[in-house]
Design a protein around this nucleic acid. Sequence first.
DNA 1: CCTTGAAATGAACGCTTGTTCAGATATGCC
DNA 2: GGCATATCTGAACAAGCGTTCATTTCAAGG
Lengths: 205, 205
Amino acid sequence: MNACSDMPGNMARKTGSHSEITGPRIRAAALHLFARHGYAAVSMRQIAAEVGVQAGALYLYTPDKQTLLFDLMRGHLEDLLQAWAAEPKGEGPLARLEAFARFHIRFHLDRPDAVFIAYMELRNLEPENFASIEALRKAYEDELETILRDGAASGLMRVPDTKLATLALIAMLTGVGTWYREGGRLSRDRVERIYWNMVRRAVGA
Amino acid sequence: MNACSDMPGNMARKTGSHSEITGPRIRAAALHLFARHGYAAVSMRQIAAEVGVQAGALYLYTPDKQTLLFDLMRGHLEDLLQAWAAEPKGEGPLARLEAFARFHIRFHLDRPDAVFIAYMELRNLEPENFASIEALRKAYEDELETILRDGAASGLMRVPDTKLATLALIAMLTGVGTWYREGGRLSRDRVERIYWNMVRRAVGA
DNA sequence: CCTTGAAATGAACGCTTGTTCAGATATGCC
DNA sequence: GGCATATCTGAACAAGCGTTCATTTCAAGG
């Protein structure tokens, strides 16, 4: 049970003197198992087994199980915000709304496990971790709300309540992950287009 | 309605079989705790403590923890189907769609805990229980899909893919439970109306 | 009064949990 | 070769898990 006759390479100019192979593998295994069975239902021993190490080895990479979950969620939401910031958005509220809808679907279809966890495991976060994650999520929602508010202000959209519309649209778009399966009846592009049409019409544009 | 799968060794109700007080109290406590912390994170001892009995007493009312979860979910979905069947629906696809949207929001706002569980704890069901619950959920989705198909066939709605639209709309409507709080900024009736307008526009009607 | 039987207790079962840590193992550098 | 250091094992810990069951409590019926 070596799993690592392949070298750890030269490491550790940084303080985090841990393997750059095992660390990511632990995160991947935890992501997969948490998404499939839920945080509380997955034991550290199960995660370790999926990676091919003993349970004790996990603690070289994470101080405890709770932090492992928190890091996964924070990593996902930071990726989300960063990817959206880097997304080309076009000009005007309508173009931006389309960019948002398509981006959201694409991003979420690429990471079904992380999306599932970020939504389902909020209740398993300790209070301060929860607050930290909620702030990130709020920042993302604000991106959409700003678009809707601009759209309403300029008369291009009809949304009686931007906050409500924001949450309704995000719920709808995120829901795609609950049923979409790769290689299914509909292509990603077709899904993107159909959803975008529903979003556009829902805001009266 | 929602009867327990297996009432323990006891026949008809002469002097009142099992306590008609404790049974429902267990279900209520389990509903509340499962919704708050998740099935896997809640112990039988915690449920018992909330009811005010010892853990062993729970087994007078349920054969095991899994069945307790299953009964909660089945009861909720059966109530949902029955309530929709009893709902006045009006005539024509558009009236039926409005009835569905408003019914769905109203029903789900009344039972946030049960809704949460029915969606989040699917992965904690053993395979045969899962299949049974999925069938009920599918039956409900079919109600909406039928409306959308009729609406599209009669030219009253524009939905390029009824299956996709069904799932998108249900996700949007169900999402209301994640943010709505009693006594908040918006009245139930206003929420219902805003959502219904978004639904109507989303299907191009 | 006694009998009945359901309702609940409280201790016990075998097992799993997250976490710790001394010791083994492997690798890179001198 | 030998030293240093990063990585991992394997056993151990206390605590908690779902579940069982002999025993107690207690209201009701004859």
